[in-house]
Nucleic acid binder design. Structure first.
Lengths: 251, 251
DNA sequence: TATTGTGATATTGTATAACAAATAAAAAAT
DNA sequence: ATTTTTTATTTGTTATACAATATCACAATA
């Protein structure tokens, strides 16, 4: 009964995660609309060729992201989009498989522009000696990567991400740290329009780095804002109604 | 075997949610340390007096918040704190049951101070006519609540929350909207230090409101920053009737 | 001795079947 | 027409068996 699926997995751990991912894609892409009732558990079991145990765990996972909501006799209903938990790494991963990368990246950038400068501000205030030392190490690795010949995009991405993560850690604020993880997930899941290769970018990172080391919050914030200027993450298209429903965004 | 628990529930839907909440509390409070291996599923089943199915669904819920991580032969390990998903409504609810409200509120305020001003900025730019009309309605309800004699704290909290939510909706950005839900959950779960009763607060909200209606992003941002000045958020006010449970029953 | 392979073992992962609880919808009673 | 009762459908929960996986101990080998 489940011969087909039981063979072609083995890559990702957790069968229910795959099923959840599958259903999530269909919801995020609009194949299942908001308010719609999904097929019953038994039907889905047959569709995916898995046991009810696995399917239910999958549905529970979707529920925990605010995507669906199950009730006896009713079924499993897709929740309104405004209640979905977009601030979740796994959600970003799922979105990256169906949504327009450009639109999502821009919208996420709009959030970065709010949070990161403030994170730099707080980090400049609060970073411990140990955290400053760690930041120094990371920044030096960043310099190495920038001057590498030939330029290694992958190395740069890694160290860039680590630099930002270190700053979030230095805030000592669990909410900022969680956002750092989100940003991390964003880097992993999306085709990131890394703001140019190294050269000019390094200058900006140095500015942020120095500001934090000098315990100059205002400068740190200013440098971060400069770093996140929209034109540096430029993209050709405006952003159309890629996600289906209402779209009041765009700049 | 499960006599005790099967009786005292009925309030919250989902047995596995209660179990998850129980374990989450123990993790968040440090009763289970980072890196620690939890008891095996069977042991936990006996401890809570539930079936393995339910217990596993509970563990899956914790996993989806980044709290734990299960592997065969290893067991279920508590993940490092830095990987926990603090940007999640359910997490806030769990935290509210074990953590120091004052500390968490202040740390969350530090995030609000980053996001809300920018949200106001974007809302002033992007809000549709419909959204502006909605904001007007909400603000008028806010005025009514502020002038109510005697002052009704509960009414004020409701309308205050709705005002902010409307602004987040007006950004048209799913990430900001999700943060709005987080803020909403914060209001519900925590004893909020509501910024005074009505009078001075209404002025600030009016300032934000007018700025958005006038399509003046800079003013909107400035007003929001003023509104979130730290010293205004330090009087503890108990908030009655806050269960923190959402209900997606109808469309 | 150090390394490598091999199997025993404990734990989570998955499947199946049966029953309980909840509730929307239909039917019956007022 | 309104209220109450019944019915049917779907998720919620329990129980049991087996499969997959990774640790650990131990033996075989260079």
């Amino acid at each position: 009964m489940n011969e087909k699926l039981s063979m072609n997995y083995g890559i990702k751990r957790g069968l229910h995660v795959q099923i959840a991912s599958d259903i999530a894609r269909k919801i995020l892409s609009g194949e299942h609309e908001e308010g719609e009732i999904l097929p019953t558990e038994m039907v889905l079991c047959e569709q995916f060729g898995v046991s009810r145990t696995v399917l239910r765990e999958a549905v529970k996972l979707l529920t925990s992201k605010g995507l669906v909501c199950s009730r006896p006799k009713i079924g499993t209903r897709v929740v309104e989009r405004d209640s979905w938990n977009f601030l979740d790494p796994q959600m970003l991963e799922w979105m990256s498989e169906v949504s327009d990368h450009t639109a999502i990246s821009l919208q996420f950038l709009a959030l970065r522009r709010a949070i990161e400068p403030e994170a730099c501000f707080i980090a400049a205030q609060n970073a411990s000696e140990q955290q400053r030392a760690h930041l120094t190490t990371t920044f030096q690795a960043m310099c190495d990567a920038a001057n590498r010949e030939p330029f290694d995009q992958h190395e740069w991405s890694n160290v860039d991400q680590q630099f930002h993560q270190t700053i979030f850690a230095a805030t000592g604020n669990p909410f900022y740290i969680a956002f750092g993880n989100l940003l991390n997930s964003m880097f992993k899941s999306f085709i990131i329009h890394s703001s140019s290769q190294g050269d000019t970018c390094l200058k900006e990172h140095r500015c942020i780095y120095e500001a934090i080391m000098e315990k100059d919050p205002v400068k740190a914030k200013t440098c971060s804002m400069e770093h996140l200027k929209e034109h540096k993450h430029r993209l050709p298209e405006p952003l159309p109604g890629a996600t289906g429903k209402q779209d009041h965004s765009a700049a």
